[in-house]
Amino acid sequence: MEHKSIALHPSSCTSCMLCVRECPDWCISIEAHSEPDLESPEYSNSRRPSMKNVLDKFTINFGDCMWCGICVEVCPFDALFWSSTEIEPKPTAEHLILDQTQLTKFLPGAIRNDGTSAPQENDPPSGRRKK
């Protein structure tokens, strides 16, 4: 497949920060907060509620990205995928900082490492985390 962009499936992302920390170019950034996980079975019967991270903003700066694929490899929750959808030309470098809405648009051309197609926008989370 052609590696033309990196797609994000936001509902799969647990804001674990692994991709942000491993990216050699520091071009991924995340804004997230944590809140009580109301759906967790432990929530009602434990004194300390289990918490989950909620993603607020996810950006990849494709002006800095060197297409190394480390972020795709490192994501343990199958939220990042190589995509064959091309990034359109942008007027300035700042426009190459794409957020989760724009990264979701690359999902139609995205595949997993095993060659099967990536989850689409409204599909449930693909990784280990249950909804």
Binding site: S15, M17, W26, I28, S29, I30, S34, N53
Partner: peptide, 21 residues
């Protein structure tokens, strides 16, 4: 540049602050 990996979504999770590799 500030390292983007310094963000900790769960502020109460007491961990050693991570440093850029």
């Amino acid at each position: 540049t500030n390292w983007p990996g310094a963000v900790e979504p769960d502020e109460k999770a007491k961990r050693r602050p991570s440093l850029p590799p």
